[in-house]
C-alpha cells in the first residue's frame, strides 16, 4: 500500500494490539464463563445474582478495554460509553426503586396489571 502524502506522523492514531494480549483476554473470558456456570452449583442465596452480575461486569470490562480497544483509544470515546452505562444503571435502579414501592399492592404471583 503506497499512500501519497502520508508519513508516520499520520499513523500516530494506530495502535496494534499484540497477539499475547488478545489471547490472554480470550483465556480470561473463557475461564470466567466456566466460573459463572460453576458458581451456580453453590447456593449463595441472593448473592448468586450479585456474583453472576459481578463476573459479567468483569467480562464486559475486559471486552471493552482490550477487544474494543478502549484502553488505547481516545479517552473521549470511553467517556461516551461510560455515560451510556451509568445512564442505563440509573434508569434501571430508579425504575426498580419505584416498582418496589408498589410491591405490597401486588397479588402474589401476579404481574402488575395482571389478574388471576
Amino acid at each position: 500500500m503506497t499512500t501519497a502524502g502520508s508519513s508516520d506522523a499520520h499513523l500516530s492514531h494506530v495502535h496494534i494490539v499484540p497477539p499475547k494480549v488478545l489471547l490472554a483476554v480470550w483465556g480470561a473470558l473463557l475461564a470466567l464463563t466456566v466460573v459463572t456456570v460453576a458458581v451456580t452449583t453453590v447456593d449463595l442465596g441472593e448473592f448468586n445474582l450479585v456474583v453472576a452480575l459481578l463476573i459479567a461486569t468483569v467480562k464486559a470490562t475486559l471486552v471493552a478495554l482490550y477487544f474494543m480497544h478502549l484502553r488505547w483509544d481516545r479517552p473521549f470515546n470511553g467517556v461516551i460509553f461510560l455515560i451510556a452505562i451509568v445512564t442505563t444503571f440509573l434508569f434501571i435502579t430508579i425504575a426498580l426503586l419505584d416498582s418496589k414501592e408498589y410491591q405490597p399492592t401486588l397479588d402474589e404471583g401476579q404481574a402488575p396489571g395482571l389478574v388471576k
Binding site: 480470550w26 477487544f67 480497544h69
Partner: peptide, 10 residues
Amino acid sequence: SSLTMAWAVR
C-alpha cells in the same frame, strides 16, 4: 468470535 474479530482488526 470476538477474539477472531479483534484479530481481524489487527
